[in-house]
Design a protein around this nucleic acid. Structure first.
Lengths: 137, 137
DNA sequence: CAGGATCCGTGGTGATACTG
DNA sequence: CAGTATCACCACGGATCCTG
């Protein structure tokens, strides 16, 4: 049995989610995909995976992010329950963010994507270069 | 050993990709994430998983998509080598799209995300409702 | 039939300045 | 320190009309 056929058989029930057959589940699925597809969420969840970090630490580690987007992205992650925010009533203020069990569990399938990307890196870049070099279309 | 610790240990090398330590790999990773995070790509790859389909068939199955976005998304998928396009010189024209082995292989980790979303559906929606109902912040 | 061209609204993202 | 407020930009996505 070919690998593609096994994949289709094993995961057939889940394929419907990808195709949007169940409207509710499809909407949740899409909301999750768009979250991990945004510019900073995965990077932040990854950074918080090993332990809590302060706002400024996250900002320094995440090269290129603005304070505005860091705040905004952390709020979204907090809303989904992927990240917890703890604020200390001190002067100067101190806020630490930590990954929740849900956030850590998300890291598993996300890293499956990372491994897929790594495994097919040259194939993908090759495809893109070939496509961009085409003169037809 | 706790599940979180095992996850961190097993996948630790890949965590760096999520955090963007290797610039090249991080860029590829981000491009893959943003592709599967866009509105239609995953749905189209899912639909083509079981066999080739024509442009109009895809448009009818993908409720709500515009011809413009269908064309555009298929071009992107074709560029990455996730989808193949075959045009027949007939009148009226006929174009079929089919998933490539690369596209079918991507379905595996993507469905891991789908299963994660399904498994944590109530937890996520609960978190969101609770967050939205908060009066602080 | 399978698109291309064009216009346009919205939302994501960054830059800058300001604040408790 | 950890944000908020404001402005500006542009890519994403939809609507409409046109074509080989």
């Amino acid at each position: 049995m070919a690998i593609e056929d096994r994949m289709a058989t094993i995961h057939e029930p889940r394929m419907h989610a990808m195709c949007g057959h169940d409207p509710e589940e499809a909407e949740l699925f899409r909301s999750v995909l768009s979250r991990i597809g945004d510019k900073w969420s995965v990077m932040l969840v990854g950074m918080l995976h090993d332990g809590p970090l302060r706002f400024t630490e996250l900002k320094q580690m995440t090269s290129g992010i603005s304070a505005r987007m860091l705040t905004h992205t952390l709020r979204q992650l907090e809303r989904d329950g992927l990240v917890e925010r703890e604020m200390f009533a001190e002067i100067p203020p101190r806020v630490v963010y930590r990954s929740t069990p849900l956030g850590k569990s998300l890291a598993v399938p996300v890293m499956a994507i990372a491994e897929w990307a790594s495994a097919h890196q040259s194939e993908i870049t090759g495809n893109r270069d070939r496509y961009d070099a085409r003169d037809d279309g």
